[in-house]
C-alpha cells in the first residue's frame, strides 16, 4: 500500500480523464460521420439500403455496449489480427454512437413534412440535393437537443472501455483504489469528474429543448 495525498489522487485522475475526453470526442465525431451515412441510407427510399441501415440500428440498440466492446476486442483475434484496447474501444463506441445518432436523426427527418421532399423533387432536384439543401436544415433544428443529450451517453459509455484495459478515468480509479484502499474518496472523485463532464451537456440539451418548444 502506497501513500497518496488527496491532491495526488485527484491530479492522477484528472490526467486519466483527458483520455476519457479524447475517446469521447473520437467516438462522437466518428459516430456522427458514420451515423450520417446510416441516416441517409435509412431515408433514401431504396429498400435494400433502408433494410441494411435499419438492421444495423436495431442490432446495435438491442445488445449491451459492453458486448459490442468485447466483440470488437476479441473478434479480430479470430482472423489472426491483434488489436489494441484503444482501437477496439474507439471502434465499438463509434458503432454505438452511429446507431443511436442515426435513429435520433431519422426521427428528426421524419418530423419534416413530406411535402418538403415532394416540393424539392418537383423542382427537379436530386435526392442528395433535396436532403442537403431542404430537409436537413429543417431537421437539424429538431435534432440538436437530443443529439447533445446523447453525447452524455457517449461519455458514460467510455467508462466501459476500462474493462478491456483501456486506461481512462474509471480504470485509473480502480487502479488507484487498489493501491490506496480508499474507495469512497477515489470513486467519489471519479464520479464528480464524470458529473462535471456530463452535467453541462445534459443542461445544454434541456435548455435547447425548452427553447425549441417555446418557439
Amino acid at each position: 500500500m502506497r501513500q497518496f495525498t488527496d491532491w495526488q489522487i485527484t491530479t492522477l485522475l484528472l490526467d486519466a480523464a483527458v483520455w476519457t475526453v479524447v475517446l469521447s470526442l473520437i467516438a462522437f465525431v466518428g459516430g456522427a460521420l458514420l451515423g450520417l451515412v446510416v441516416t441517409v441510407m435509412r431515408v433514401s427510399g431504396k429498400k435494400p439500403l433502408e433494410r441494411l441501415s435499419a438492421g444495423f440500428i436495431a442490432a446495435v440498440q438491442s445488445i449491451p455496449l459492453l458486448m459490442l466492446i468485447f466483440l470488437c476486442f476479441f473478434g479480430p483475434a479470430v482472423v489472426g489480427v491483434e488489436i489494441s484496447p484503444w482501437v477496439a474501444a474507439a471502434t465499438a463506441l463509434i458503432l454505438f454512437a452511429a446507431a443511436f445518432l442515426a435513429e435520433i436523426w431519422r426521427s428528426s427527418i421524419q418530423a419534416v413534412p413530406r411535402g418538403q421532399w415532394e416540393a424539392g423533387k418537383a423542382l427537379g432536384l436530386r435526392f442528395l440535393q433535396v436532403f442537403r439543401d431542404i430537409v436537413a436544415p429543417q431537421a437539424l433544428r429538431l435534432a440538436v437537443p437530443p443529439t447533445v443529450g446523447f453525447s452524455v451517453q457517449v461519455v458514460k459509455g467510455t467508462a466501459l472501455t476500462s474493462i478491456i484495459g483501456f486506461v481512462e478515468l474509471t480504470k485509473a480509479g480502480t487502479m488507484l483504489n487498489n493501491v490506496t484502499f480508499r474507495p469512497f474518496f477515489v470513486f467519489a472523485v471519479v464520479a464528480l469528474v464524470y458529473f462535471a463532464l456530463c452535467y453541462p451537456l445534459s443542461y445544454a440539451s434541456r435548455l435547447l429543448e425548452r427553447r425549441l418548444a417555446s418557439r
Binding site: 459509455g157 467508462a159 483504489n177 474507495p183 469512497f184 467519489a188 471519479v190 464520479a191 464524470y194 456530463c198
Partner: peptide, 10 residues
C-alpha cells in the same frame, strides 16, 4: 450524469 459502472464500484 455518472456511469453505472462507477456507481457499482462506489
Amino acid at each position: 450524469n455518472t456511469p453505472f459502472i462507477v456507481q457499482l464500484f462506489f
